[in-house]
């Protein structure tokens, strides 16, 4: 450990704002990217499932 205490670590030798801003922005945007990518799959599958349901309903109505 390079720092004496936890407070020292968060202080980053006086550069706390810049260092934590950089790391914060990085991990925030990466996190957003990962979450939106994961959601994309869910959305695609939902859309296809809805489309199938619609087709099934159409088919059922037509056969009546």
């Amino acid at each position: 450990m390079q720092f004496d205490s936890l407070a020292d670590f968060f202080n980053m030798g006086g550069y706390a704002f810049y260092v934590w801003l950089a790391y914060g922005v990085t991990f925030f945007s990466l996190g957003t990217l990962v979450i939106s990518s994961l959601r994309q799959k869910r959305k695609v599958l939902n859309d296809i499932a809805k489309k199938i349901q619609r087709e099934d309903r159409l088919k059922a109505n037509r056969s009546n």
């Binding site: 450990m1 390079q2 720092f3 670590f9 030798g13 006086g14 260092v19 790391y23």
Partner: peptide, 19 residues
């Protein structure tokens, strides 16, 4: 962030380099 030595010129601000 925590274990690499502090840069003697740039202090701790250089830790941004790792990302």
């Amino acid at each position: 962030l925590a274990f690499a030595p502090t840069d003697y010129q740039q202090g701790d601000s250089y830790r941004i380099i790792f990302i």
